[in-house]
Design a protein around this nucleic acid. Structure first.
Lengths: 216, 216
DNA sequence: AAGCATACCTACTCGTGCGTAAGGTTACGC
DNA sequence: GCGTAACCTTACGCACGAGTAGGTATGCTT
């Protein structure tokens, strides 16, 4: 209705791609601090140095915005991991490199990643997104285990492997949560601990050692 | 303002304690299905077969209601676990019994527990509640490990144990999530798988076998 | 049978925040 | 130097849902 008095020369006009990144940065920040529901589009817009309708014009509704955040962050993380765990390394080396990259990433994006991630686990609409990316991770880990097994001339049912992989991924996520809550903790050390829990067990499984429930 | 025409004989008047349980049942159900924010007090009240002001009168605000749900469910779970894992058993037996009880509980309360639990991880106000109860679990597990270590004449720094315990608890939580999402999966089998991942590794740690990062 | 506490209801208020309509301003091609 | 398209704004509509005011029924006690 009322035009802004053209005293402020308004801020720089920037190309869409740049603004989108600024918005995503702001969104990640605010979603992390407040949680999905407590975060307001107004605050995100303000934090991005832009007005609300721009956010709607570029990134869509609040849900779509959150999903866009998730996508960007997961893509960055997968890239970091994939870049570190070259497929031609032996299994334990791959696992180690992958874990180190993973915890390194989380450590460097404490409020960015971990909190965003925790948000997504809860609410319906995002669970699917998250499940998809976890599935990719599980697949990678399961593939690693399978590869190692074949190298030893052994074989295990697919489901079995998948569940073990799921447990490993889950343990890593939990330690990542722990890491995000302990600012003084070192990512590298956390990765080492994870190896101690995961690999010692997994290695035995790979060698055919299994635990069977007692008959009671 | 306007009185209800006294045609319906209204429903049975029940003592407070009974109504409270009905309300909590309904709340758990609705919170699970919808998530904390999407759940409405109206729906909870309706599902409990009561009107909204009663819920406020008995259980307080929405947040307080959710926390009441958390308390009841965690108390039930801790009871189930503590009852199963008698402290005089050897470590592997205790772990096995405890895990079996845990997964049994989750399997029996799929939508009750697991989803409620997932909710709580996200939002600020409940994270504390949840952290407290996880801390108790971690403490129990760490105590078990410590006990087993002393029995073998060895000793490890407290933090180290805590982190390992945290990883084990985390892996269990993740498998619980998996279980909750797979209606056809058997709790007992899941517990066995968890033992295979966790115990084989933990047992080696207890025996002093550790993994060290390569120098690259 | 009056008294009183407890159980229970309908029908509101009101803040909050998503999403949008409608219009102003700058850059860039020609 | 002028149109046009992309960029950006203020200011609002509107739904939804938490929490409450105020009144009614029921049963236990004396």
């Amino acid at each position: 209705m009322l035009a802004r008095v053209s005293s402020t020369p308004s801020f720089k006009r920037l190309p869409r791609a740049v603004r989108e990144q600024q918005m995503l940065d702001a969104a990640v920040k605010v979603f992390s601090r407040r949680g999905f529901h407590a975060a307001s589009m107004d605050e995100i817009a303000e934090d991005a140095g832009i007005s609300k309708p721009m956010v709607y014009a570029y990134l869509g509704t609040k849900e779509e915005l959150f999903i866009a955040c998730l996508h960007r962050e997961t893509a960055r993380m997968m890239l970091a991991i994939a870049g570190a765990a070259a497929p031609d390394l032996p299994a334990d080396q791959r696992l180690w490199r992958g874990l180190r990259a993973f915890f390194g990433f989380v450590g460097a994006h404490r409020d960015g990643w971990a909190v965003l991630y925790r948000q997504a686990r809860g609410s319906q609409p995002f669970a699917a997104e998250l499940a998809a990316m976890r599935a990719r991770l599980v697949e990678v880990v399961a593939g690693m285990l399978d590869h190692a097994l074949r190298a030893r001339g052994r074989e295990v049912a697919g489901t079995e492997l998948e569940v073990v992989a799921y447990a490993l991924v889950g343990a890593s996520e939990s330690l990542a949560d722990w890491l995000a809550d302990h600012p003084e903790a070192e990512p590298e050390k956390t990765a080492t601990r994870m190896m101690n829990v995961a690999w010692l067990g997994a290695a035995q499984l790979l060698d055919g050692v299994t635990w069977r429930p007692p008959v009671d």
